[in-house]
């Protein structure tokens, strides 16, 4: 029994940027990140239920990947940077170890 991938990913990034500007991108997604090592209240091991990675694409090209392992906290929070040269369509994909995924999208406009 694994948690449904229904959590709404949260993104925090600027709506606009100057050409060449390096912008901060914050991401957070609701997920328990159960390692399978923990015991529940009933003394039984809680089954493993982990997001495996976050893949970030900018205008279709992969620009950042996170590979989550056991010691990544629940509700993975991540801040990284991206240099914006032109108006950029960002696509975020969180992949579960079982193959399910969650996606989010954003756009940063260069005037």
């Amino acid at each position: 029994m694994t948690a449904a991938l229904t959590g709404r990913p949260r993104l925090r990034l600027p709506a606009t940027a100057q050409a060449g500007e390096v912008v901060e991108i914050r991401t957070l997604v609701d997920h328990p990140m159960e390692t399978g090592l923990r015991k529940g209240d009933d003394g039984q091991p809680v089954p493993r239920d982990m997001l495996a990675r976050l893949i970030v694409r900018a205008n279709g090209a992969v620009v950042f990947t996170a590979e989550f392992r056991n010691a990544t906290s629940a509700n993975p929070y991540l801040v990284f940077f991206l240099r914006i040269e032109r108006t950029t369509e960002l696509a975020f994909t969180w992949l579960h170890e079982d193959g399910r995924s969650l996606t989010a999208a954003a756009r940063i406009v260069v005037a």
Binding site: L37, F64, T65, A66, E67, R69, N70, A71, T72, F80
Partner: peptide
């Protein structure tokens, strides 16, 4: 288990 994460940039 020692692994926390890897970030590829």
């Amino acid at each position: 288990t020692p692994d926390v994460a890897t970030y590829r940039l």
